[in-house]
Design a binder for these strands. Structure first.
Length: 398
DNA sequence: AGCACA
């Protein structure tokens, strides 16, 4: 399938370990040159971000259009180690048709300089205030050692909990939280990749799984395809109204063969889907029903992980998360298959969203002020829109 | 090739 993205084809990885002779010491910021100067600044920044962010949190991507600065960019990492691993793995990567050249920046980026200053100020202030100087610890071990008097038989759970409360896990959880915000802005397909790389990165970073909770948000609208052209709204109504929470059938004016079925709850939609997917609505047509799912992963509150039972579930949660990531991918592919055969335009996308937006206005006007529900619905609408827009634009630019 | 950020 041909998908248009703003991502350049990342073809040959000519990386290996051939570090360019490099006199510049490691830096938070990578200097990139030999970039394709034809790419527009915004897109370039976005693509660079998407490429480099797998190696760690990125503070900024700077690219400039001027004669002197074209073809170059700066990637500001929060962490030097991450900058280093990006430098090593992406060196000479074909990017928009040209092998990019990476080195450390000669000077610190302003943002880094500032935060270094702030840290220096704080430690100076601390030193001035406190008379017993804090012992300068050297090189913190990956997993904090047990307290000086290790209780003879710490249970596995207790060790686990101690680790969960470690600074490293907190940082990892933080990284995941940042990533979550970023995920919201990515099309579904890219979210899968990001979720996987976040898990991988955090897992290697702390040597164990980050405690994550996942929330699968289903959607109370079903997408039905392969309907015979003469299908009427009444016929579909007959079929679907037996399921609890049924609200409405929406045919798409000007488009044969598809329909949207709204429910007032996810579970009703799911049970209708399970019952009717593949249903032979006529001698020749077995209908196919797609239920769009959205999922969000977020770090578990590390305080909550003090609870033993929850800490037992961590591993299971993470593996479930991985499965969900794969599921999203599969579903996305499946959707694309459906949609590739159709002229799926914006009015169709809007029609799909019609139900959701109505739910939103219902919630808003009900005056119950359920913030949480509103956020979810609004978020789901945005994600759904992004996904649909992505699908639509992939036809446009074919 | 070219090292900036307001």
């Amino acid at each position: 399938m041909s998908i248009a993205t703003d991502q350049p084809m990342a073809t040959t990885m000519a990386n290996t370990s051939a570090p360019v002779p490099n006199s510049i010491p490691p830096n938070h910021t990578l200097y990139v040159n030999n970039l394709n100067a034809k790419i527009k600044k915004q897109q370039l920044r976005k693509s660079l971000y998407n490429l480099f962010v797998s190696y760690g949190r990125i503070h900024a991507v700077v690219a400039m259009k001027g004669v002197k600065m074209r073809g170059q960019a700066f990637i500001v990492f929060d962490d030097i180690q991450n900058a280093t691993s990006a430098l090593r793995s992406l060196q000479s990567l074909m990017f928009y048709g040209k092998p990019m050249r990476l080195s450390y920046a000669k000077r610190d980026s302003d943002a880094i300089r500032n935060s270094k200053e702030q840290i220096a100020e704080k430690t100076a202030a601390l030193a001035a205030m406190s008379q017993p100087e804090p012992k300068p610890r050297k090189e913190k071990p990956r997993i904090p050692p047990p307290p000086s008097q290790p209780p003879p038989d710490r249970t596995v759970h207790e060790q686990h909990i101690a680790m969960m409360n470690s600074e490293e896990v907190n940082r990892a959880a933080n990284a995941v939280a940042m990533a979550e915000a970023e995920l919201q802005e990515l099309p579904l397909r890219d979210r899968t990749r990001r979720i996987q790389s976040i898990i991988a990165a955090q897992t290697t970073m702390i040597g164990t799984a980050v405690p994550m909770m996942t929330e699968v948000q289903s959607n109370s609208t079903l997408f039905v395809t392969n309907l015979p052209p003469e299908t009427t709204k009444d016929a579909l109504e007959m079929l679907f109204r037996q399921f609890s929470g049924y609200l409405d059938v929406r045919l798409v004016p000007g488009r044969e063969g598809i329909a949207f079925i709204d429910f007032d709850n996810d579970a009703g939609a799911a049970s209708a889907r399970d019952a009717l997917n593949g249903f032979k609505i006529s001698a020749t047509n077995a209908i196919s029903i797609v239920h769009f799912f959205l999922s969000i992963a977020y770090p578990m509150n590390t305080l909550e992980s003090q609870n033993n039972r929850q800490s037992e579930e961590l591993a299971a949660k993470v593996s479930r998360l991985k499965h969900i990531a794969f599921d999203i991918e599969n579903e996305t592919k499946e959707h694309n298959r459906f949609l590739e055969n159709m002229r799926f335009d914006m009015s169709t996308a809007r029609s799909f969203l019609g139900g959701s937006t109505r739910h939103l206005s219902n919630v808003m006007s009900s005056g119950r002020g359920d913030r949480r529900a509103m956020c979810y619905i609004a978020g789901a609408i945005i994600l759904a829109f992004l996904f649909l827009y992505y699908v639509v634009s992939s036809f446009r630019t074919k």
